[in-house]
Computed example of a mutant assay.
Amino acid sequence: MNFIVFLLLVLFPFNVFAACSSPSGQASQTRYDFTANKLYYCNDADWVEMGGGGGGGAGVPTDVKLTTSSNNGNFGGFAGMKSFIEANGCAGYQICSADALFKHLENGGVNLSERGWVTPDAVHSRGSCAGWTSSAGGGNYGSYWLGGGYSGVYNVTCSISMKVACCKFD
């Protein structure tokens, strides 16, 4: 078994630039802890529990909106995605997960006016355009929230340009 893992690492090398550890993760990435039954996001240094105080429950954003500009799936990685969000009307926000948007609607929140990129989560894993580094068509896909009069997460080729769904958790 160890030989197979070693062989895979040698044949398919990859770089890991983890901003969070235990487990490793990138800025704006989310993860679900099935033992604690909690959703977390990486804030560049640590895993932070989503939701909490005054917002109506864990994982429920206190505000949801779209960036002011659009981009295809290549943001230059997770850190680039965070920079794009900060520079385009969502300072203090993070990229929404589909789960956070569903919880926002379940708690009386208003749906987004149009579609926007979202990060995959433990429940709605669709893709992140190869870690937000791909604008290729074909086999690369990213997750997006439909918005408008509809709700739901879908996947689309990374060459499509759209805004980013931003969530704020106080």
Rank of each mutant, 00 (worst) to 15 (best):
M1T: 15
F3P: 09
F3E: 15
F6W: 08
L7Q: 09
F12V: 14
F17D: 13
S22G: 11
P23L: 02
S24A: 13
A27G: 08
Q29L: 01
T30W: 02
Y32D: 06
N37C: 12
K38M: 03
L39W: 14
C42A: 04
D44C: 07
A45R: 12
E49T: 15
M50S: 15
M50W: 07
G52Q: 09
G53V: 13
G55N: 15
G57E: 12
G57P: 10
D63T: 06
D63V: 09
T67L: 00
T68R: 00
T68G: 02
S69R: 08
S70M: 08
S70Q: 08
G73R: 01
F75D: 03
F75K: 01
G76D: 04
F78A: 12
M81H: 01
S83F: 04
F84L: 10
A87E: 10
A87F: 03
N88I: 02
N88F: 04
G89I: 09
C90Y: 03
A91D: 14
Y93M: 12
C96R: 08
D99E: 15
A100Y: 04
F102V: 10
F102L: 10
K103M: 06
E106C: 12
N107F: 07
G108F: 09
V110K: 13
P120I: 02
V123D: 13
H124Q: 09
H124T: 09
S125H: 11
S125T: 13
G127P: 00
S128C: 06
S128V: 07
C129N: 00
G131V: 05
T133E: 02
S134T: 00
G138C: 03
S143N: 04
W145C: 00
L146W: 13
G148M: 01
V153K: 07
V153F: 07
N155F: 11
N155T: 10
V156R: 06
C158I: 12
C158D: 07
S159V: 10
M162L: 04
M162V: 06
K163C: 05
V164Y: 05
V164W: 01
C166G: 08
C167R: 10
F169K: 01
F169M: 06
D170A: 14
